[in-house]
Design a protein around this nucleic acid. Sequence first.
DNA 1: ACATCTTTGTGACAATTTTCACGACATAAG
DNA 2: CTTATGTCGTGAAAATTGTCACAAAGATGT
Lengths: 215, 215
Amino acid sequence: MSEQNKIPQATAKRLPLYYRFINNLHIQGKLRVSSKELSEAVKVDSATIRRDFSYFGALGKKGYGYNVEYLLEFFRKTLDQDEKTPVALIGVGNLGTAFLNYNFTKNNNTKIEMAFDADPNKVGTEIGGVPIYHIDELEQKLSEVQAAILTVPLAEAQNITERLIKSGVTGILNFTPARITVPEGVRVHHIDLSVELQSLVYFMKHYPLDTDEEA
Amino acid sequence: MSEQNKIPQATAKRLPLYYRFINNLHIQGKLRVSSKELSEAVKVDSATIRRDFSYFGALGKKGYGYNVEYLLEFFRKTLDQDEKTPVALIGVGNLGTAFLNYNFTKNNNTKIEMAFDADPNKVGTEIGGVPIYHIDELEQKLSEVQAAILTVPLAEAQNITERLIKSGVTGILNFTPARITVPEGVRVHHIDLSVELQSLVYFMKHYPLDTDEEA
DNA sequence: ACATCTTTGTGACAATTTTCACGACATAAG
DNA sequence: CTTATGTCGTGAAAATTGTCACAAAGATGT
């Protein structure tokens, strides 16, 4: 599947962010960009940006900066923007609905292909162009899908997770407070809104003067 | 305000997570817990947990573990769970609505006191018990509020941010894709749903066998 | 053509964070 | 009392990540 385990995780986490901004620049018709400019836009130190880019070789030109078109093309390849990754969303509550309306596909390699919920009023409808199926049909419908966004109530989280994995899902974006357990080989990224808010408040009170940090 | 700048940021970020799970244990009636057990629950290495706790002194007993009641009490104090922090939410779209229904107050020191939106149909109503005011009333209503959750469209982000800061807000949880610019002293945590999904997909494809990581 | 200005890419270093591994103490059982 | 087992707290080592600062290369202007 892949070869470069050399790229630090910290760098890998920043790549999608870079991609987004480079894409913006391209849309704005900008032809070149320096690490300093990019730094101001994404709020990451310019030296860090140069170092990050350098893991992929020499992408820029000295005295000039980076060619936006070239950079964009490079990131498109690196981030597999050409092959679309089908995603399913489980749990069409408020948060789930927000995702369905988000329209990720715009500049992205991900597309939410289908959603699942237990509510009969929702089943059969569409939100943001995404069809909603009943949760009982999960195993049946999930054949091509590799990634899932989990926005179900806490109590269902582990149960649904197991069904997803049995159906071949290898990546889960988990918005429930549950720290779900998965077999090796399955990636889980947790985003706990309550923890994020708590964290912000803690940092506000205990680290008053610092510059902003990632969550 | 505070004194211990000694606690590493990485540790600080995990504190709310620990708190949540210790609270769960307490509710379940558990009397003690070992770093190993906690490790399995929160998916953080047990040595890291012991190290994290040790920054606060000796919270546990050798050969025994940690007393849940004591630990909970300790975290309650450390995370300022006694003084409620008032929060405002700006932008009552799908995502904003999800937050309003989330009911953070349950086991938390944060409470969304008010929300703002530009839509006249929403202004004057309540969601999840939180009153919705017109965005024009922002400066007027925001007196006590120190933190804000930003769930507005991209185009408004920087503009609203500046108004928030003028009104005394010192912490922002930013869900817009914009990397907002703020003066020193204001904390911003960014959560970009699109970047999170991209990131998950990238890790799935390029770091296949690893164990799960934070987002 | 030349001097000057910019900006990259990176070696060296600093800071942060994680992990190992072990002494010390707790508890329980024989 | 002694042994076996479990667990913390923490020095020390390792790994990861971030920052500095500068030579080299190319861009730009006259």
